[in-house]
Design a protein around this nucleic acid. Structure first.
Lengths: 198, 198, 198, 198
DNA sequence: AATGAATGAGGGTTCATTCAT
DNA sequence: AATGAATGAACCCTCATTCAT
């Protein structure tokens, strides 16, 4: 069940001077911190927290949306890679379960991923591409589960993405992050099985 | 399947001069309208829309947060009433299904309800009381379903509330409000059944 | 040569609480001061100078353009009144000369008037109305001068307005405010006479 | 009536490596284009439009003000050359008329020229020198017109410069750029003639 | 010389909330 | 009670200018 691969590129700026790259990373790190807190994501505050000028933030991320997507991209990429591996993997079942678990866990620690996953109309081409790869991967996984009689016919990759968002919300809507997660994933997994012919 | 009862008291201010009550209602109605639109909920705009001064809004709702909660409480009350009826009702199954459907539908048209439902630590005592009644009602319903072998043992009323929040999020995370709703409710309902002994 | 009438209403806000009116006046006064200086007209700075919050400035003048017009309105009204009197006056010549002189003098001490005069597409209805009255008055004056053989046929009220703007610019484009004014007005006046048949 | 001579040196930097000179010219050209548009003149945008880095712009023009003046100097030089030719020319009348017409036309298409002409205290020595040459040329022209009884005694070269600024303003203060221009020039020309002894 | 990343003062605007009328 | 004027912190964003590479 190999799921992480955090040596994946943090972001995709073609070629950047080393100092600029450092700044970019500092901004992303600060943004992640801010987003984790209750303060939202104000550009000026972010710049201060990152120790750079506002202008620098805007140079790297012309829009808050772009920033959010860049922020979510890291986690999204990891999830995509996991989905693609699961799609290629020939093992029988359990792939979907792993993906749901991972997708949920990542959202809980990464609000930007949760945001990107919940807003399917990406602004950046990179994000759109990742979401597309996720869709393809999930569809492949679903196809295999369906073939094994283990998944409903009326649920596609986009439904899985949306249910994943829902899972994160359900967990977030109350105390305890760990304990309910497994149960909620269970509920959705069981719900995704082909219903017994009544 | 009687679920609505919109003649329920809009809010619970002890005793109010009739004109004050009318104002209160106008403000709540205007707030619901504004919140439905894309403009968010600005207190000054709200006052103008309601045809009263800002001061009047603040007299009734000392804080924006209080207003939002009062707004959500309206919808919440309807849901609570439905849950209490379902709890008293002696009919066999289907009660939980009805409640999920109604809870989802209400959230989709009433963002304030969605917010209140997702934030279980209510600021106002009234809201807290409603949430409590909801819990009691849902637990009764769950107990019956469980007794009939139709519900998992490891899921309680608060889980249902949280899954309801998740459902709203899943529906909101993509295009189409109607079509996926039924399927997603189905998934969760099937997921809530007692799992077949493996 | 009666030209001023500075007891004219400073601005035209229908009915205003006395304190609000006082604020309005303070803002206008501060704006006049700022505009006279070299600092332009920044809303925040203006608010500070006027001793009110920014919000108050925006409440009274939703747009910088509105503020400018309100500012220029005072001087414009005086000019309009002068033009209307000149139009009714039955005396032979000299009316146009007086108007040019007064229009120039006012612009030199009131940059807002210069701005309003130079931008004939007024945003506020009040300003538009004043500009209209100015046009009508000037046309009447021109008609009389023309009838007396003292003005060109190919020049109308709007040309006079524009030449007035030009005069202010010419005076402003060099040192000395008083000395050249009279000469430049002379040049334009002589230029406005019906040219001798060649 | 030969007025233009646009092969005049674009700018006067002592000795410049050919590539540096090319850059300088590109920047000036881009600046002229930007200034003509509605976007104002932002240094970064200018650099991009010129295809150079901001640093390069600043190497050539240490200040925005310097750049604007250099830009205006270009057009100013053409006007100066015209004035000097008119001063040397022995033809009877019409020289002043031509100069006014040309000066106005250039200002209307070249806001930087209008600015330089209106601000007689030039920052750069080059510009100051050009303004000086303009003054000398215009004075010579005026002297000749005066000698022929065609110009007032109380108007000098600086007055002509200032009236030229006024003309540009008058034309700019309303719709229609072409039609009023000729008339306004006419007015000023007639106004500049020696007034008939009353 | 050229480049373009970084800076941060500064201008614009909104809006929850208070309080004089 | 109701009103709506006032407040000012907080955001947003731009852009002239500097400086490390």
């Amino acid at each position: 069940m190999p799921e992480d691969r955090d040596d994946a590129p943090l972001a995709r700026p073609a070629h950047l001077r080393p100092d600029a790259l450092a700044n970019r990373r500092r901004v992303l790190a600060a943004a992640a911190r801010q987003l984790a807190g209750p303060e939202g994501l104000a550009m000026n505050a972010l710049a201060r927290e990152a120790g750079v000028g506002v202008g620098t933030v805007y140079r790297h991320f012309p829009t808050r949306q772009v920033l959010l997507e860049a922020l979510g991209a890291e986690g999204l990429e990891a999830l995509v890679v996991a989905a693609e591996r699961a799609a290629e993997d020939e093992r029988p079942g359990g792939a979907l379960a792993d993906l749901l678990r991972q997708g949920l866990r990542r959202q809980l620690t990464d609000p930007a991923l949760a945001a990107v996953l919940a807003e399917p109309d990406a602004t950046c081409a990179d994000t759109a591409a990742l979401l597309d790869r996720l869709r393809v991967g999930l569809d492949a996984v679903l196809a295999r589960e369906r073939a094994a009689g283990l998944a409903r016919d009326d649920v596609d990759a986009d439904d899985v993405r949306r249910l994943l968002c829902g899972l994160a919300r359900a967990v977030g809507a109350g105390p305890g992050r760990a304990s309910p997660s497994a149960r909620y994933v269970d509920v959705v997994l069981q719900g995704l099985r082909r219903p017994p012919a009544p």
